[in-house]
Design a protein around this nucleic acid. Sequence first.
DNA 1: TCTAACAATTAGGAGTGCTAATTAAATGCC
DNA 2: GGCATTTAATTAGCACTCCTAATTGTTAGA
Lengths: 199, 199
Amino acid sequence: MPSRKSTSETRQIGTGLARIGDALRSQAWQQGAELGLTPTQARALALIGASPDGVGLTALARGLGVSAPSASETVKALVARNLVAKVRGTDRRATILTLTDEGETVANGVEGWPGFLEDAVAALPADDRTALLRGVSQVIRTLQEQGGIDPQRQCLTCRYFQPNRYAGSARPHHCGFVDAPFGDSGLRIDCPDHEAAAV
Amino acid sequence: MPSRKSTSETRQIGTGLARIGDALRSQAWQQGAELGLTPTQARALALIGASPDGVGLTALARGLGVSAPSASETVKALVARNLVAKVRGTDRRATILTLTDEGETVANGVEGWPGFLEDAVAALPADDRTALLRGVSQVIRTLQEQGGIDPQRQCLTCRYFQPNRYAGSARPHHCGFVDAPFGDSGLRIDCPDHEAAAV
DNA sequence: TCTAACAATTAGGAGTGCTAATTAAATGCC
DNA sequence: GGCATTTAATTAGCACTCCTAATTGTTAGA
């Protein structure tokens, strides 16, 4: 194994994940062109659509990982395109964002975006795929714990949430996505990997 | 955001990778602020620095996954900051880009960027880490074959790479460049000694 | 030679992202 | 109750990203 530079396994993985992220971004530009959306707009649309009761602008900004003014600007573009509606809430400082019917349609089109990536993943042998999922899940869990990723939507309505699986334990609940137990103090209000539980 | 849609392992991985990519991008903005670089500039700097003989603008654009005009604009900013030098080559249409001394210094600072991600990766058990590296490598190779990514300098596409030469051994692969055996944990995604294999 | 292909740039336009400052509404506290 | 603080969102101003289309040289091919 040649090396003058740092070459730890860890570093190679970091580099690889960064490359995949880059590929996703540049792919998003192309896919977005078809719908007239930029990557950020698409992501905002998805986040808003994922919140049935609407989202505030600040929460959206946190979810996108950008500043409030940036989010405001993006929302402005989406409103101008009639994809998103703004409503004033009980707290009359705040805005509540929801999708319009048209926005709903477009958001559905956005859903399958990482499809080309999934093709690549699907080409893996089953064993490697499982290992990859475990690794990615754990990385995400660590990032959330470090605060690098914004938690979204609440566990209580999440299909991955298994309350009191370990009754009596200090960490009685179980999250199936990151495959780890956690306690009441770890309950998420807004988890990016949230998926609505079946009714 | 997947909802009642397919929840396959594959889709989970796709979503997870996208999420990690988002985290990386927003982190890059913060880290970049310290050096006065945007994420794209940092990436361009790294790519130029990785090519000892210099790169052309078109190659750079492909590597960044953007159009030539976008790359041109980014390079203009780097040249203005005295981090990159442009030279006219034998082909007088083409430009050859190299780092200035100052650019070299800054590029070194950029190298450790995904550090916060690496912390997360380092927290994995060794087995999972190796499996993650193998999975990430294969995903990248598939993306390259699909044309979604510009060819990277990884073992899987290297002429010196002899996979499973010592099948059954703990270090089954062989690198012909350093003439030594190595295992999955030694797989490179960005190797300075990479030479593309014949098609 | 003359045309096609190619490398890079310019022009023009929408969007992203930042910090700092502003407006408006809700809270807190004496 | 009243006034200072905090909070939500926006505006202003700036640099950069990214695109397509058109332009200017330069090289290579029929």
